[in-house]
């Protein structure tokens, strides 16, 4: 599961920010989990716990606060805005898997419900974002 790769990236980024800010300890890491990437939240949370370096005092007791963000799309051809969930349910499993692995492939498998253009932007909810850390 590449949730592990993303969890690894989150922890490495948080540690770097803490070092830049001179924090001795990270109390919480605030994350946004975009719907488009279809991250398995349970696996991701498990991975976050298990990629933590053991015996690292900086990360001892850290809490992960995860906010889910719906994926919003907006057509650049006609201006129509919609939520991914409206398009996603109809996709076969292999196409959902491709979007999970490489979210930009949504442009290959989803088109604007109003004009059928593949030229749309991902306004929100693409993937994993680290919002902030707290000491």
């Amino acid at each position: 599961m590449h949730e592990w790769a993303l969890a690894d990236a989150v922890v490495a980024t948080a540690v770097k920010i803490a070092q830049q800010q001179g924090l001795q300890q990270i109390g919480e890491i605030n994350l946004r989990l975009g719907e488009l990437q279809q991250i398995d939240r349970e696996v991701f949370e498990f991975a976050l716990r298990h990629v933590l370096p053991p015996d690292d005092p900086m990360l001892a007791g850290v809490q992960f606060i995860i906010e889910a963000e719906p994926a919003e799309l907006r057509c650049l051809a006609c201006g129509h805005a919609w939520l991914l969930a409206e398009s996603f349910a109809a996709l076969p499993a292999d196409q959902r898997e491709a979007i999970h692995l490489l979210p930009e492939t949504v442009h290959i498998y989803v088109t604007c419900p109003a004009c059928e253009s593949p030229d749309f932007e991902i306004v929100a909810g693409r993937g994993v974002a680290l919002i902030s850390i707290g000491g």
């Binding site: 993303l6 490495a12 980024t13």
Partner: peptide, 11 residues
């Protein structure tokens, strides 16, 4: 912040 940027060197 995009956490993916931090992991590329390690990859």
């Amino acid at each position: 912040m995009d956490p993916r940027l931090q992991i590329i060197d390690r990859r």
